[in-house]
Simulated scan of single mutants.
Amino acid sequence: MNENGEAKTGKGICLSRLITINDHLRLARLQKKEINFKIVVIGDVGVGKTSIIQRYTSAQFSSTHKATLGADFAVKTLEWDEVTRVNLHLWDVCGQARFGSLTSVFYRHTAAAVLVFDLTRPETYNNIVKWLKDLRQKVQLPGGLRIPIVLFANKGDISTETLPPQIDDFCKENDILYWFITSAKSNIQIDEAMIKLANAAMRNHENLQVPLLTDDVIKLSEETVDSQTQRNWKPCAFV
């Protein structure tokens, strides 16, 4: 007990002081500026999109998943700094062809994207071109700039022998920021990849005044973007 009759908790701080500090911290969390980014996760059926999102947002993995119908989403909250909280809305877009006509709806307000292929099924890498073309035709940032994209070579816990040797060149030619060997099952490089993607989305938001998820400003177009005039070259790297 101190001279005021207050119970102390450990050395140098009393219970009432601790409660006051906790109240301030709680108030600071409530007063943080919140920024929302929508990130679409796209690729063929069965490449592991749902497992990647589940691993990243809830630190869980399940070997049994039903195929996503249409789209689903989950949220990952990042305490970015002392005054900013970033909410990543990860959209799990169905890979079935019959939902292809709806991608322009699913892509709406997208600030960044993850392309996923399955290292155990090489044909899913070949289809990345289709997914990338569809995304680029339908989503642009203000001013016609491209959204940041990372590429996941998923199920790397099973095998990496089928890793395409041309993946570096593919990323550079298609303005993909980074590629990663990932595994939802073994939790390989997913957190690192998402932080890099979130950083890219934040830079766009700060430097280009990219609208937030709630703003209906992102341009959606069915016209093909001129890749020569719109290309914004950035280094592609395996991390």
Rank of each mutant, 00 (worst) to 15 (best):
G95E: 08
R136W: 03
M202I: 12
S183G: 06
V116H: 05
A74T: 07
Q189F: 09
A198H: 04
S159L: 14
L78K: 03
T103E: 08
M202A: 08
L135E: 00
F152N: 04
I147G: 06
L145N: 14
W91T: 03
K33N: 07
K49H: 07
G48F: 09
T229P: 00
W233K: 11
D134G: 04
N4S: 14
S159P: 09
Q140F: 04
V45A: 11
I39R: 07
Q209M: 06
W131Y: 07
V116L: 13
V129A: 13
W131S: 02
Q137E: 11
D23A: 12
P211V: 10
S227E: 14
A112N: 08
F61S: 08
T77M: 04
L213M: 11
V45I: 03
L151I: 12
G46F: 00
N87R: 04
T84K: 14
D215C: 13
I42Y: 03
M1I: 14
V40L: 10
S227N: 15
D157A: 02
W233H: 09
R203H: 12
F170E: 08
S16Y: 00
I158V: 15
A113I: 05
L212F: 06
T50Q: 01
W131D: 02
I53S: 10
L132N: 06
C14W: 07
H89Q: 15
E82M: 01
T229D: 04
K234H: 11
I52S: 08
S101N: 12
R29M: 05
G46Q: 04
D44R: 00
K196N: 01
T229W: 04
N199C: 08
W80A: 01
W80Q: 03
K38H: 07
N2I: 15
L78I: 15
P142Q: 05
T9W: 00
I188E: 01
V239G: 04
G100D: 12
Q54N: 10
V129D: 11
L88Q: 01
I128M: 11
A200M: 04
K234P: 04
E3M: 11
A7V: 15
T229R: 11
T229G: 02
L141K: 05
Q230W: 10
I39A: 00
W91V: 15
D175N: 14
P165A: 13
R17V: 06
C94M: 10
A198I: 03
V114D: 00
R121F: 02
V41P: 01
V47Q: 02
D175Y: 06
S221V: 09
F73S: 14
A111T: 07
A59N: 11
P211Y: 12
S221A: 13
F99N: 06
I35C: 07
E79F: 09
R231A: 15
L119V: 14
I181L: 10
R136C: 05
Q140G: 08
L69T: 12
V86P: 08
G43H: 04
I35K: 06
T77A: 14
T124P: 06
D134P: 05
A111F: 01
A28N: 10
V239M: 11
C171Q: 02
